[in-house]
Structures are given as structure tokens and as C-alpha cells.
Simulated assay, not measured.
Amino acid sequence: MNKRIAYHVATGLVLGTGLSACVNDAGVDVGQGTFVPAYDGVQTRRLDDKLVSFVVQMQGARGPQDVEDYAECAAAQYTLIRGYGFARHVRTQVENNNDVWVADAVYTISPALPDGVQKLDAEVVVANCRHQGIPTV
């Protein structure tokens, strides 16, 4: 069993949320057919010092969650590159046009645990992205 774990912190407690699927060694999702995504890149736009937009594009997504996960992976890696440890999700907009999925996600980045509900520990998320085979920045 493969598990997608993104750690979010709410009221001081670390909560695990995620997507799980049964996947064999060949990357075949036993429950829903073959999952062979094509990650087509990330555009990073600094909106100010700690507010960043990530536009990611992929093909072969099973649904919006796959492209949202890709954006989260990009945000987590960017957070680490900038020398910070945490990010907070602000919003994500997802579009699908002929199996080309695009997500525009906005995150704040910070050295300390930010306020808000949808927080992530960048090191934990990046490690999980690598485990899941989702590229980062």
C-alpha cells in the first residue's frame, strides 16, 4: 500500500491527510488501471517576499488531486530552497483541457510555523514527494 501523506498542522497538532492507492512495482494502480503521469513543469512567481504562486502542468492525471499534489511538491521544495521550513496553502485553481491539467497554487512561506489551518512541513512533504515519484522544483 502506497500512501500520500501531507502533514498539516491545525491548532498545534500534526495531522496526516492523504491519498492512498494500491500500486505494484510497475506503477500500475491495481484498483483503477495504469497511472503514468507526465509532469510538464513548474512556473514559479514570487508575488512578494513570502507569497509565491506555482503554476504546474501535467498529463495523465487521474483527477484534480494529482495536479494539486504536484503543486504542493513544488511549493515544499521552493520553501526549502529559500531557506524556510514551512508553507501555508492559500488557494489552488485547477483546469483540465483535453487531459492537460494545470494548477495555479498560491502558498506563503515562512521560517516558523505560520498561522492558519492548511500548513505543511516542507521537509516532510518533499521526502514524501520523492517517495511517490512526484518531481519538485
Rank of each mutant, 00 (worst) to 15 (best):
R130V: 08
V137T: 15
F86T: 05
D40G: 07
V94K: 03
M1R: 00
V23D: 00
D48G: 11
V9L: 10
V67E: 12
A61C: 11
I81P: 03
V52H: 13
I81C: 09
A105T: 03
D121C: 04
D66K: 02
V52R: 14
P135S: 07
G60Q: 05
R130E: 10
V42P: 06
P64D: 09
L80N: 12
P135K: 03
G27V: 01
V67F: 06
Q77I: 00
H8P: 03
L15R: 13
P111E: 07
E123S: 10
V28K: 10
N128C: 13
T108M: 04
Q65M: 13
A103G: 02
A105S: 11
L13D: 13
I5L: 12
I109N: 04
V56D: 14
V94W: 01
L120F: 15
T92V: 13
L47W: 06
T79L: 11
G41M: 00
G27F: 01
G60N: 02
Q65K: 13
G16I: 05
V9E: 10
A127C: 08
A6H: 11
E95F: 01
D69W: 07
Y107M: 04
L80C: 11
N96Q: 08
V52I: 15
K3E: 08
T79D: 13
N97Y: 01
Y107A: 02
V30S: 08
E95S: 08
R4G: 14
A21V: 11
S53W: 04
E72H: 15
D66W: 01
Q65N: 13
D48S: 15
M1A: 11
A103Y: 01
E68L: 05
A10D: 09
P135W: 02
T92H: 05
K3I: 08
G41R: 00
V94H: 04
I5F: 04
G33F: 00
L113D: 00
Y7I: 12
M1L: 10
A38C: 11
L51P: 04
D104H: 01
G63A: 06
N98T: 00
N96E: 11
F54E: 07
T108L: 05
V125G: 04
T92L: 03
N97A: 00
L19D: 03
Y7A: 03
G41Y: 00
R82G: 01
V28H: 10
Y70N: 06
A61Y: 07
G133L: 00
K3T: 07
Y84H: 15
V14S: 14
D49Y: 02
L47C: 04
R91A: 14
V137N: 14
V42C: 12
G33Q: 00
N2P: 09
Q118Y: 11
R91W: 04
D48M: 07
E95M: 01
D48L: 10
T44E: 11
G12P: 10
V55E: 11
F86W: 15
P135E: 07
V42I: 07
A105H: 03
A122K: 15
A71S: 14
R82D: 02
Q77W: 06
V102F: 00
H89T: 06
Q57T: 13
R45D: 15
T11D: 15
V67I: 14
D115H: 12
D121Y: 07
A6R: 10
G63C: 08
G31T: 08
V125A: 14
S20K: 06
D66N: 07
T108C: 01
V52N: 13
V55H: 02
V9S: 09
S110F: 01
A75M: 13
N96G: 03
Q65H: 12
V90R: 12
Q57N: 12
Q132R: 09
